[in-house]
Amino acid sequence: MKIKRKIEIAVISDVHLGTYGCHAKQLLTYLNSITPKKLILNGDIIDVWQFSKRYFPKSHLKVIKKIMDMAADGVEIIYITGNHDEMLRKFSGTSIGNISIVDKLVLELHGKKAWFFHGDVFDVSIQNAKWLAKLGGYGYDLLTLLNRGVNWYLEKRGKERYSLSKKVKNGVKGAIKYIDDYEKTISDLAIENGYDYVICGHIHQPKMEYIENKYGKTVYLNSGDWVENFTALEYQFKRWKIYNYSNDKLAPFYPDEEFEDKEIKDLIAAITIVEQQKKKS
């Protein structure tokens, strides 16, 4: 019998389903290991920018099916829109059963205010030159695809995984400054508005940091991603923590073995059945 961890809130972002960089199997392992009261999907879950009918593997469909199953089992699913899934913003404010779509979210957690949003609104490159940001997204996807080949070889040799994209970002001063400016802007605004926690994604940099300026203080949290870091945020016992799949994964939980032998058409049918059940209820 599998014992799942019960947590109040789990936050994931930047999954990028539909791209070569997405590590859906690792995410499934994580989702199979928890029973949250709330699951917050903080943007860029499905990558509409780079979506292609030629590439949407079975494991990616299983992630969608798993999330819908969690909703059917009573988990509150809150989908916060991001830039790669911005087409969903036209449905902001819509709810279907336990699933709701929003652009931002404020929760009160044991007397403290938490502000959730994806974070692309603070990205100048997206606001001023969306075509350039999309082009950069394709380049990033190509880099992660190449990285998969490198890591396959390293794992065969019994060596540790290596992140090319992280190496590139950490080696470029402009990228480091961008991340620092991004985090400072968001934290300053959270302090100005009296938020105790500010939770975002977008930059694929998991982080939890206490920030203070002359006007006040806040805790900046970033859920990271499921492309290179495999991280999530968890809230339980009045505390936040960063879950790191590479360090914290639970061996007994495998990626949705119940559906391992199902064809894609069967998975789509299963998802449709869940939708129909929700409409009846």
Score class of each variant (00 low, 15 high):
241 K>P: 06
211 I>A: 02
153 Y>W: 13
176 I>L: 08
242 I>M: 09
110 H>V: 03
84 H>W: 02
85 D>S: 04
93 G>L: 12
166 K>Q: 13
55 Y>R: 07
264 I>A: 14
125 S>G: 02
93 G>F: 08
145 L>K: 14
227 V>E: 11
237 F>V: 09
179 I>R: 11
180 D>Q: 13
161 R>D: 14
236 Q>T: 13
177 K>L: 12
23 H>D: 15
150 V>P: 06
143 L>W: 04
77 I>F: 04
120 D>G: 00
112 K>H: 07
201 G>I: 00
244 N>A: 05
145 L>D: 12
110 H>F: 10
75 V>C: 14
198 V>G: 01
179 I>S: 11
107 L>S: 06
193 N>K: 15
68 M>G: 05
13 S>R: 03
183 E>H: 08
107 L>M: 09
148 R>A: 06
277 Q>R: 08
212 E>S: 08
15 V>E: 07
160 E>K: 15
57 P>Q: 14
201 G>S: 06
90 K>Y: 15
203 I>S: 04
191 I>Y: 04
1 M>N: 07
122 F>I: 09
196 D>N: 14
65 K>R: 14
29 T>Q: 15
63 V>K: 08
202 H>E: 11
232 A>G: 09
65 K>Y: 14
269 A>N: 08
203 I>Q: 03
74 G>F: 00
103 D>I: 04
254 Y>A: 11
260 E>Y: 07
34 I>S: 00
236 Q>C: 12
119 G>M: 13
36 P>W: 04
20 Y>W: 10
226 W>S: 04
237 F>P: 03
246 S>F: 10
188 D>W: 01
174 G>W: 05
257 E>T: 12
270 A>S: 15
79 Y>E: 02
192 E>V: 02
265 K>R: 14
48 V>Y: 07
187 S>A: 11
59 S>T: 15
94 T>K: 13
33 S>C: 07
153 Y>S: 12
175 A>I: 06
157 R>G: 10
236 Q>S: 08
199 I>W: 00
130 K>I: 10
191 I>T: 03
146 L>V: 05
238 K>H: 11
59 S>N: 15
254 Y>S: 14
22 C>D: 04
155 E>Y: 08
101 I>D: 01
122 F>W: 15
80 I>V: 09
34 I>Y: 01
184 K>C: 10
210 Y>E: 15
47 D>H: 02
196 D>K: 01
144 T>S: 11
235 Y>T: 00
277 Q>K: 12
213 N>C: 02
172 V>K: 10
16 H>M: 00
106 V>H: 01
243 Y>Q: 09
26 Q>Y: 10
270 A>T: 02
227 V>N: 06
91 F>I: 01
61 L>Y: 13
1 M>V: 07
99 I>T: 09
158 G>V: 06
273 I>C: 06
247 N>E: 15
183 E>N: 11
256 D>H: 02
60 H>W: 00
136 G>L: 06
176 I>W: 03
89 R>M: 13
171 G>D: 06
54 R>K: 13
244 N>Y: 01
50 Q>P: 00
4 K>E: 13
151 N>M: 03
158 G>A: 12
244 N>Q: 14
207 K>N: 07
115 W>M: 04
67 I>E: 02
185 T>L: 12
86 E>F: 10
210 Y>H: 14
25 K>V: 11
13 S>W: 03
142 L>I: 12
136 G>H: 10
274 V>P: 01
228 E>R: 14
104 K>Q: 13
114 A>P: 07
161 R>Q: 12
260 E>C: 06
198 V>F: 00
157 R>I: 10
247 N>R: 14
204 H>R: 01
110 H>S: 11
